[in-house]
Every structure is written in C-alpha cells, then in structure tokens.
Design a protein around this nucleic acid. Structure first.
Lengths: 210, 210
DNA sequence: ACCGATATTGAACCGCCGGTCAACTTCGCG
DNA sequence: CGCGAAGTTGACCGGCGGTTCAATATCGGT
C-alpha cells in the first residue's frame, strides 16, 4: 500500500479537510494527530511527514478557515448603483450577517481559534491581520456614508465607524453561534435597522436567500 | 500538617481563586488539577477531595465567573428619572460596554467557556441560562423605547430589540477582547451613537468613568 | 481518653498524546 | 534495470494529566 501514490498537494488538502472535520466535531482542543490521521485514513506518521508538527497543522487549518469565513464583502455589486451610501452600507451589513449566520460550524471554530490566539502569539497575529483586512474592506463604503451626511456624522471617524460595523457583524455572529435554533435573523435585522437611521427599515430580505 | 484546619467554605473559595488565576494565565485548556493545586499550595489529592472531578471544578469556576461578569444592569438609577427612554437605553448600553471592556481577562475566560459550551451540554445550558437572565434585564427599558416611538418601531418586537442590544454589547466586548490596546472605546461609542438615532449623539461620557 | 468523621498527603495507575525512527514501498529517471 | 528520492507504516518513547487510594493527622463530641 505505501509508496508515492498521490501528489503532496492532494494529501495536504485531504489532511486539512479531516482536520476541519475533527475540529468541528470535537473542538480544537479535541483535535489529535491520531484522530485526524484516522479520519483521513492514514497513519499518524504520515500526517507528521506532511505537517512537521501539530502546531503547523493548526496554523494551516486556521488559514484554511480564514479563507472561507473572512472573505471581504463585494461592494461593487450591480443593483447598488445610484443607491444612497447608507442604504448600500446597511445592505452590506445585512448580507454579511446572513452569510456568517448560515455556517455556525465555521464560526464556532473561528471563535475557538480566537481563544487560542489570546495565548498564542502567532495565531493571534495571524488572526488580527486577517481581521484588519476584513475591516479595511468596509472603509470605502463607510467613507461614502460619512461624506453623505456630514452633519449627522460630524465628529465620527472612519476608524470608529468601520470598527462598529464589524463589531456589529460579530455580535450577530456570536448570537447565531450561541443559539443557532432560537435565533431569528429576520427579527434581528428588523430591530437593528429600526434602531439605526431609517435606511432600509422596511426592505425585504435579499431575494434568493432565507 | 494535615488535618481539619479550615472550614470547607474557605477551602473551596481558595481553590476557585486559584483556578481562576491559572485559567486566566494558561487558558481553560491549560487548567490542570496539579497546576491549580500548586497555585493554592495544596496537594492534588485534596483538591479532588473538595471537587470530585475536574469537570465539577470547571463548572464551579464558570458559576464564579458568571456571577462577576453577567450582572444585570441597574435600570433604576437616580438621574435617569424623566429622561426619554431611548436616552436611558443608550446610556445603559454605554455603561455596560464600558464595564465589560474594562476587564478583558474575565471576558477572555468567558469566551473560552463559551467555546467549551458548544460541545459540553451542561456548560452550554448553564451559559444560555445566565445569558437569558442578562438579556431579560433589558426588557423593561426596551419596551419603554418601543412604546415611546410607535411609528419608528412599528413592527419591531421586544425580543428582537433586546437581542440586538446584548449582541451589540457582545460585539463591543469581543472587540475589546481581541485588541485591548488599539481599541478606543470613546471613538467607538461616538460612531455607534451617531449611527443610531440621534439619542445621545453628543452627550459627554458618564462622569467619574474613563 | 477515645472514636468516628473529616481533612490532607503523595505515591501510584493508566491512558493518551506528540513526536521519533527504522524499515519498507513505490515512483521517476537515467 | 537499478538507484535515489519521496511516500508510508506502525512500533515505540517520554511525559503529562485525571483519578484512586492507603496512610496519616486533626477535630468535635461523648
């Protein structure tokens, strides 16, 4: 059975998928070299041949996960042309919350890494880096919002506003993660938008999604 | 040295303090019977005499922590009498965000438990229970806000609004936890309040706090 | 003064986990 | 065909962590 069967690219991807699988079921702490190996149907030795150490496997898994969750929002959508900036802004927030709340498993794992990142410098740095990238993606639309109503956003900085935006998204994500069943995102969004300026208060949810 | 020296009440408190100490430094996963015992200067055996199992110790630590972080806000403050409900509401949010963002260590630990709770039914239940209590404390003020502006909050439910309120708080807390240094709560609050209806937009931060 | 309940110790047990390694297999290439 | 590089295995090691336990010490009550 042993020998050069598959190119390393494939193997590593296979291992990562299994790593995700195991981590999703048993948590990051429950992730074990042996468990991942058996899930991927290979020996623990082989796993450590491809990822020299458990730590490296975890870091790779983190990257794998970040690529799939913190994708910067698309601000150039057709259909948003001509709409007021605040509307586009709120629509983007809405879309992001929908997207994230739909995959609670990814979110749970992301938060688990977050907790790790508090004590592991490398993980923490990697995480902050990617989060900054994500936050930065909101900058253009936030600037447009601020410029559109100078009086209202008199002394508000773009920094502060982007932070509020992603924090809001995160708050919603946390909520969805804690209580995936009893969480009505429609109610949630309606309440949020009635609290925020009258922007989208009565708009229907984006077509084709639930 | 052995023998009946201190009443069990004291011992258990001492152990919990040490457990918190260790968990704060090394994380919940890094918490070890032996570490806690040595921090409390007793043998591992004694620790397991007072808390039959590590799991029970963790549950006790969780309760200890919840008592200190998720204290329901005081809505009956002098000084809020006569103010419009939305003002009181936003003021409460502001105060809660301040309070939580001031103790990042507690927060980090709370989130760590959160992650555990995703896989451990008992921890999860305990957590949800306490969070519901916390959220319920916001109900009266939220109801007052909704009643005060029926047009604006036309189809908004109290459920949705309370959830948004605590999610908002949580989002802020997460932010403060991730990046305790680069997090300017003043900027943050200003941006948030300029986004939300003009309630407190230009009010100074509550006296006596930073 | 003694006894049983309670508190306390530290060694010991056992299972798991990360990581190493020598052996073996397969492949591409000359 | 043969050789070296890459892939693969499973046994093994050292260590740690939760838990058990027999032995001991101390206390309150009679």
């Amino acid at each position: 059975m042993p020998g050069r069967k598959r190119p390393p690219r494939t193997r590593r991807e296979q291992i990562l998928r299994s790593a995700y699988h195991v981590a999703a079921r048993r948590g990051v702490d429950g992730l074990t070299i042996r468990l991942v190996a058996s899930d991927a149907r290979l020996s623990s030795g082989l796993l450590l041949f491809h990822y020299k150490t458990k730590r490296q496997l975890l870091l790779a898994l983190l990257d794998w996960l970040l690529d799939r969750t913190l994708v910067p929002p698309d601000l150039e959508r057709r259909g948003d042309r001509g709409k007021p900036p605040l509307t586009v802004f709120l629509g983007t927030l809405r879309r992001e919350m929908h997207r994230l709340s739909r995959e609670p498993a990814h979110l749970r794992l992301l938060f688990a890494f977050w907790v790790l990142g508090a004590r592991d410098a490398e993980i923490g740095a990697r995480m902050r880096e990617e989060l900054d990238r994500y936050r930065a993606a909101f900058r253009p639309i936030v600037l447009a919002v601020l410029r559109a109503e100078p009086a209202r956003f008199h002394r508000t900085t773009a920094e502060g506003m982007t932070t509020v935006a992603v924090s809001f998204i995160k708050g919603c994500a946390v909520q969805a993660m804690i209580d995936p069943d009893g969480f009505g995102i429609t109610q949630y969004l309606h309440a949020a938008e009635s609290l925020i300026g009258r922007g989208l208060a009565s708009a229907p949810p984006p077509a084709g999604r639930r």
